[in-house]
Design a protein around this nucleic acid. Structure first.
Lengths: 335, 335
DNA sequence: GCCGCATGTTGGACCGTTCCAGAAGCTGTC
DNA sequence: GACAGCTTCTGGAACGGTCCAACATGCGGC
């Protein structure tokens, strides 16, 4: 009644279990008629290999763990697509795990994956405690994708070039004629980087005095509150760059509630080019950080490290692109 | 250099591997000082159990596979939360897999999970080919959550009561005074169910003639196009019920582009109470289908079946609740 | 001092694979 | 027809756990 094993297949095909193993692993050292017999027997019995037994014997799982920090904000979907395409080609499968779901155990969020002895780990997005990766990185390849935290030695980082992306969108606003531009900032390494690049770009154009920075928490609510504060000032900014699309949607609502037309009275721009920004009812100008390509590069890093382990961690930045939609225009509604 | 095993721990603690195994599985048949010695040795060596070896020996993985059909539409996040809370309490871990990602292999999307010998399978959302579950359901418990497809015998189905939910929101619209109400329909069992319930409710209120049904594809684009058609009619509907929130956002845009105020000129309502509908810039009236509870019940079904396998499949419907926000009002903007 | 019984502990078989050394079969050479 | 050198195939030992029957040990009762 229990599932068939290679021994059952071997018996049915009249060969040894070793030969079955050879056939199923695609060896070319097997006579065609034997191969046929084995494959037929396997098919007839509905045999499927037992991954646990295989990985116990091979001492590897052909599986990489993907640690997501929050499924609610689906900016990572394209990244997963990119990851998957290369990993799959490399014969590896992906196992998804949500750090937020496993957090309540009080353990390290990667624990379930590590118990399963994944061959590698991809951390997608900002991690609460990057230092916790150190012992992991000593054993298996670890790649951080889509975030820019400080990581332990030997960990590769792949992300969009936020500095460049923020420069693109800030210069887009400046080019439209905006002089008083505000930024709703975020937290973490990414938030920090985006804020700094915003300030530098403004300074580079001689607009340091027009750069208003307000902290936010990268949520819609935070973006809303920050925008209300900004837009209630006497010297109201004519454009707002939010740290991400979600916060930008909050800013959009704030403008609406204050009776301000977007982009007539105030321009707003987001970051990430999420599905949210593509909704025609929002239609946010934003920055596409080429998540698919980030995913592909992360996969390449991991595959390289699996092939030749060790070596220092590297940093790969993918060039983002400006995505102009409906929420930005010149200060008087021009442009 | 390789990771420590229970034998290493045993040696260090000066006991047999069997005793280590007992201690690590929490047996109370072990003298305290021995237990301490074992735990200390394990800690010092940084021992972690090998899930592959364990599941090979136990003939089970303590893992349930969760098959998602599309990560892009995150309506399932609350459902996963509910699932996780109960499964975790039952000592089971969840393994996520995206059917869309694995589709390109040309194999069954559940294959990777089945190779890993998951103890149970939860299918979240509409599956392309429910009949493919039959051979799986013969071996392990299978639960379909958040969808209403025709399933093979022995599969439990847990979902929101769409019939009731649609009645709630339709009667909300009728109660506001709407007489010409349109429905942007969807596909699959869920789409079908929602459409039928809409028609029945309208008929029940003597409004069969005012019920306009247009097909859509459950995307924003589809909702947009359907709404443009509906709102361009001479006998324009005063309210539109969309099959889900995403399509509703499309309808919202269509109204905006046609110069119609929402909810002044036309009311719109969605379904699912996704994070999208909660954005204050959209603020959709919608139906909350209690996804968290659906997830919990699905977990309960799975746990029950693991305990006592066999028996016919059951259907569990969770009662949804109306979520009134800003996109519905009386026909003249009243209410 | 022996028995019975409960409590702790142990070695060895087993789970379903892969890996490897070597056996078996075949072909060709001298 | 013995032998080397292929190709093809096989049995047994891992892999790292769990499970179980059997073995110590301690202790109260007779």
């Amino acid at each position: 009644m229990r599932p068939p094993t290679i021994r059952d297949v071997a018996e049915r095909a009249g060969v040894s279990k070793s030969l079955v193993s050879l056939v199923l692993r695609g060896s070319d050292q097997v006579r065609p008629e034997r191969r046929e017999a084995v494959l037929r027997a396997a098919r007839e019995l509905g045999y499927r290999p037992n991954a646990a037994a295989r990985s116990l014997s091979e001492r590897r799982t052909r599986t990489v763990g993907v640690l997501l920090n929050d499924l609610r904000n689906p900016w990572f979907v394209d990244l997963l697509d990119g990851l998957n395409s290369l990993l799959h080609a490399g014969g590896l499968r992906m196992l998804l795990s949500d750090a937020r779901l496993n957090r309540r155990t009080g353990q390290d969020p990667a624990d379930p994956l590590l118990d399963l002895r994944v061959d590698g780990l991809v951390v997608v997005g900002t991690l609460p405690d990057p230092a916790a990766l150190e012992p992991v990185a000593e054993r298996i390849p670890v790649v951080l994708a889509g975030a820019r935290e400080e990581v332990p030695p030997g960990v590769d980082v792949v992300a969009g070039d936020d500095e460049h992306g923020v420069r693109l969108v800030t210069e887009h606003l400046i080019g439209l004629g905006h002089r008083r531009v505000a930024h709703i900032a975020g937290y973490g390494a990414v938030g920090e980087l985006r804020r700094r690049s915003f300030e530098e770009t403004m300074r580079g154009h001689g607009l340091a005095g027009g750069a208003l920075v307000t902290p936010g928490d990268m949520t819609e609510e935070g973006g809303y509150r920050a925008a209300v504060r900004l837009l209630s000032r006497a010297d109201r900014p004519t454009a707002i760059l939010a740290v991400n699309d979600i916060a930008c949607v909050g800013a959009l609502s704030a403008a609406g509630e204050l009776g301000l037309d977007v982009p007539g009275d105030v321009s707003v721009a987001g970051y990430d080019n999420t599905s949210l920004s593509r909704l025609r009812h929002l239609w946010l100008t934003t920055v596409d950080n080429a998540s698919h390509e980030v995913g592909r590069r992360a996969a390449r890093c991991l595959l390289d490290r699996l092939e030749s382990p060790g070596g220092p961690g590297s940093l790969h930045l993918v060039r983002p692109a400006l995505q102009i939609r409906g929420t930005t225009a010149g200060p008087g509604g021009t442009g």
